[in-house]
Design a protein around this nucleic acid. Structure first.
Lengths: 142, 142
DNA sequence: GGAATTCTTACTGAAATACTATGATTTCAC
DNA sequence: GTGAAATCATAGTATTTCAGTAAGAATTCC
């Protein structure tokens, strides 16, 4: 249940890439400037995203990154889980589960699960296509 | 958007208290043993909960803590926000907002907001009464 | 060959987390 | 009124995580 700067930056970068489809690869430096993200940090995130198959990298001069797949097919959840790990309740795992077992089951767990499910739903149903068009709308309205 | 052990332990303790209404004060040590929570840590959490008005403390021997108010009136959200601070998007604040301002508004922000809202809903609509009865149900089903 | 880029690995400073320690204060029971 | 049991207050600490930096190797375009 932790959402760090990695997800935030990563999502910004992915939205940026989604808005540049058909324009050839965008370099990490370019993206970092437009989105105000620490360049070396972003570089790492992009490599992670590539290893997960969400972007394609073009090495060498004039290289950069391109979205891998259609924006409609990439959900925010995918990006988050690649960068911050699985979106689990953080709470109620490992030893805690054992403690729960001691006294049967814990009602607390049901809340954490509902919360996680709610988060997943939001992140799963939102795609880069949604966000890219939202971004265009925002940009055009001044 | 961070849910730490404080919230987890605190919720467990509050559920425990909700299940003991009418039995007089429960000491921190007692609760810590039943729920397998580090005792001194729990002590601090309970003091915090008292300062927020969610529990009442009875000092001295035979003292302890009692739920302050009816379980139906205490939401999980209240507990979480007291112990872990406001449930805000973590992301997209401060300097980031300034960066957003630079290029207008950011579509990413809309996702974080939806996510936060979804979380709040779950936590807000779940009360200690719900969890206490859920717990009783779980305990009775062996 | 040189410049621009990704890739890899390692490092680091700062903050947060999850406690622990100590002792003062209050109160009940006897 | 003394001792035990409890809360309260404050400070300390070990570990981890976060966010970012650094340095250089590998790749590719021009």
């Amino acid at each position: 249940m932790r959402l760090s700067a990695r997800s935030e930056y990563g999502l910004l970068a992915m939205i940026e890439l989604a808005g540049r489809i058909g324009e050839g690869p965008a370099s990490a430096r370019e993206i970092s400037e437009v989105q105000a993200i620490p360049p070396k940090f972003l570089e790492q995130l992009l490599v992670t995203l590539r290893k997960a198959g969400l972007v394609t990298a073009v090495r060498g001069a004039r290289g950069g990154f391109v979205l891998d797949g259609a924006p409609e097919d990439i959900s925010v959840l995918q990006i988050i889980e690649v960068l911050d790990g699985p979106l689990s309740p953080t709470v109620c795992d490992d030893e805690r589960a054992a403690a729960c077992g001691k006294s049967g089951a814990c009602a607390a767990g049901t809340v954490w699960n509902r919360a996680t499910r709610a988060l997943r739903e939001v992140f799963e149903e939102t795609t880069l296509a949604d966000l890219a068009s939202e971004q265009r709308r925002m940009d055009s309205h001044k």
